[in-house]
Amino acid sequence: MKQVTTEYGDKVAWVYRQFPLDQLHPVKARKEAVASECAAELGGNDAFWKYADRFFELTPSNNQTNIDTVLPQIAKEIGLDEAKFASCLASNKYDAHIEGDVQNAVATGGNGTPWSIVVAKNGKKYPLSGAQPYASVKQLIDLALQEK
């Protein structure tokens, strides 16, 4: 996606939505999603992306992340207020927001991550399931840009 934003610049907008897979990563995935929203609340967009990037660097697959240590550790690393982050993480303030994103992903046909939808200006949608090669993503973006 970084390659997309570099190559296409202002022609595209990247909208990130949460899609924790509770069936495969019970409890932890949702908590991790909340943590990224807390990072955004405390440090803005930059903090959100720093948090997300660092999280995916540190986390092992198959629900094995120790969220009690890893989540606060990343917050500290990227310079967030640790007390406020802990308070935000313990609250339920983002539960409805994340659940809304999950419902939206399911309603649009998503059954795994990453679940991406390329949306043209005229509203035409090209849903792409999974981590696909850049050439496939690029073709769909080019197609969406051609839509009148």
Partner: peptide, 21 residues
């Protein structure tokens, strides 16, 4: 996790996809 597993869809139909965990 990436939605390419037919088993996930099959188990979802019977509400048993949690078994994968």
């Amino acid at each position: 996790a990436c939605g390419s597993l037919l088993l996930t869809s099959s188990l979802s139909l019977i509400g048993a996809s949690g078994i994968l965990a």
